[in-house]
Design a protein around this nucleic acid. Structure first.
Lengths: 218, 218
DNA sequence: ACCCCATCTAGGGAATTTCCCTAGTCGGTC
DNA sequence: GACCGACTAGGGAAATTCCCTAGATGGGGT
């Protein structure tokens, strides 16, 4: 079973690699990255069986990375390793095509179970996230959840642009990274600002942080 | 005893006003604001006996607001009402001239004690912040605390500019607010970026948030 | 007293970015 | 086929940022 590991923190990538490889010799880690964009690229090149991905990644968040991977390498199974199922967009991850969702607080044994489960094409949710799902979806037909406008009103592409801007890139750099024209990035920025009802980059950064697209590390 | 209340949240201002006025009829709340800059102005105009201020305020943080007030109306006693003494710059507040420091979790009785103590010109620290002070200053001659570069390498003026920028203002708006030229704001921005070793507004916003100059509300 | 240096101030002018408007292409959907 | 949302991008004006220079002020050290 060939595994690709995506995580915001490089140390965690190494830790998970070590952990996965102690789980048995039918497990091989074929690669790792802290960038979502690079993750998509690696998934395409390496065609891993399972992608073990965090929700927060550089350049492209976990949800949209999942969406992209499912788009380009549909046979891949994505298992999300989130830090906090309550605050992070569980539903969006599942809609994007993730098969499993566990939290960082799970034990190694549970990780192995989860990986094997999604490898066989079945859904795996840790107890914690399962109950969150029940609460938000089954029980809450009224409270209507806004789940952060970033994931409801912005398009995937707009989120990519927002994240790259919030990571400190200018229009030109974002354009280079996404292989589009700087003018297009401008248009996206305008549209994002309009949708989020703001007119300052500072507020965009705040939105991005709240949505988990980036964090306070610099 | 005439009291001025400064707090980021308007509701809290009202709550504190009500609370203070139940403490006895020798207490009068003479004003309130959620802005540090306005707070300084009010302190000058109203010359309150005690300023009860939060650490996080709009436009100018609690530490620098205290510094300004001590500068312009030295007889005023400033009592800081912080939310978390561990993460917030207690030492800086005391250096800036605050006489007291208590946390939001204190009881009404303690607030009254604190206000009366600082009114008489004596220092009041709640038990919690006192122990933080001991730990960081008395016991920690080695660990040297970095207390966020924002408070160690930036000048007060630079922090003002940083905060206003992080609140979504452009150079012109910052300049208007501070009554200086937009060009001066530019210079400050450059200097701040150099000191914080960054070249993007996004990173400035993150620094500002970490230092508690602004938060994720928009 | 005197000098030094940090701080705050600000302009000129080039370079870059943002803003506003328009518009083509594509892939679904009704 | 018509329509719409998403993504793309250009032109051109407006605004902002960047780099460099520089004066005023005031505290601190010798």
């Amino acid at each position: 079973m060939r595994i690709l590991i995506l995580n915001y923190e490089r140390v965690v990538i190494e830790a998970l690699t070590a952990l996965v490889e102690t789980m048995g010799n039918d497990f091989t880690v074929v690669g790792g990255s802290d960038s979502g964009l690079e993750g998509v690229e690696l998934a395409r090149r390496l065609t891993p069986d399972v992608v073990l991905s965090g929700m927060k990644l550089r350049e492209l968040n976990g949800v949209d990375t999942t969406r992209r991977i499912m788009d380009e390498v549909p046979d891949t199974k994505v298992l999300i390793l989130a830090s906090d199922p309550k605050s992070e967009p569980l539903t969006e991850a599942l809609e994007a095509g993730a098969l499993g969702y566990i939290t960082r607080h799970s034990e190694a044994a549970e990780l192995e179970t989860a990986v094997r489960t999604v490898y066989s094409g079945k859904v795996y949710l840790c107890p914690e996230s399962a109950s969150v799902l029940v609460e938000t979806k089954v029980l809450a037909e009224d409270s209507e959840e806004e789940a952060d406008v970033v994931f409801s009103v912005l398009t995937p592409r707009e989120r990519e642009v927002l994240q790259l801007l919030a990571e400190g890139n200018g229009s030109k750099e974002v354009a280079d990274r996404l292989n589009i024209s700087p003018k297009t990035v401008d248009t996206h920025r305008s549209n994002i600002m309009q949708k989020l009802e703001t007119d300052s980059l500072a507020d965009l950064v705040k939105h991005a942080i709240r949505a988990g697209l980036t964090d306070l590390k610099i």
